[in-house]
């Protein structure tokens, strides 16, 4: 599996708090059996209602690094949300904090979701607004985001960080490797053994 240590690309400034996954991808676009084509509906309703939404703006169309606020991705567990962002072109998200299910979904898709302080996010967001073509680099080894000569520090739970950095973020193969351990665990669970285990 691909190791993910550095993502470089232009930014998308969306420094808002409590953005829930219903807003990222409205429920009507969950009526599907594949994730194909879901990218074009990212933030559909917000975009309809706000012509100035960053996802509507020409200059941010090629953004790879999304800059968001507190509690990003709260609400519904729908993986359709990070799937739609990924298919839109987002490859990394820098926010003040993330809702946990969303964070886990990002990790299993190979999207680093990293945290920075509010002040640093303001700086980053302002720099992106001022120069939409600016290269922003998210570095999972150095734990920094650098842009135009500036660098801010980021945090990420070590488990997820190392999973991405070592290319172990698709957990399926690792989980399957433990087949013996899985069977042993099942064998000692009272409720799988007529409560006499």
């Amino acid at each position: 599996m691909q190791t993910i240590t550095q993502i470089t690309g232009s930014g998308i400034p969306l420094l808002l708090d409590d953005i829930d996954t219903d807003r990222i991808i409205p429920a009507r676009y969950l009526r599907c059996v594949t994730f194909d084509g879901i990218g074009e509906h990212a933030f559909e309703d917000d975009r309809q209602q706000d012509p100035n939404h960053p996802f509507n703006k020409e200059q941010f169309q090629n953004g790879k690094v999304l800059v968001a606020g507190r509690n990003f991705g709260c609400g519904s567990s729908r993986e359709h949300a990070p799937q739609s962002l990924m298919r839109w072109g987002v490859q990394a998200i820098v926010a003040e904090s993330f809702a946990e299910i969303f964070f886990g979904n990002c990790t299993s898709l190979g999207i680093p979701a990293v945290c920075a302080s509010r002040d640093d996010l303001r700086k980053l967001s302002a720099a992106v607004e001022a120069n939409p073509a600016l290269d922003v680099t998210v570095d999972l080894e150095a734990l920094t985001v650098s842009f135009g000569g500036e660098s801010i520090s980021i945090t990420m739970p070590e488990g997820a960080r190392s999973a991405l950095a070592t290319g172990q973020w698709d957990f399926l193969a690792q989980l399957l490797d433990a087949e013996t351990g899985i069977k042993e665990t099942a064998a000692k669970l009272p409720y799988l053994n007529a409560f006499s285990a």
Binding site: F35, S77, E158, G159, A160, S162, Q168, T185, L192
Partner: peptide
């Protein structure tokens, strides 16, 4: 329910009961 510790430091956790529905399972 802990099966073991993964390289990432996370726990591999056995899930005793899994429930699915039509929206999040096809993929």
């Amino acid at each position: 329910h802990a099966v073991g510790t993964l390289q990432s430091g996370q726990t591999q956790l056995f899930i005793g009961q899994h429930l699915i529905h039509e929206v999040t399972s096809p993929q």
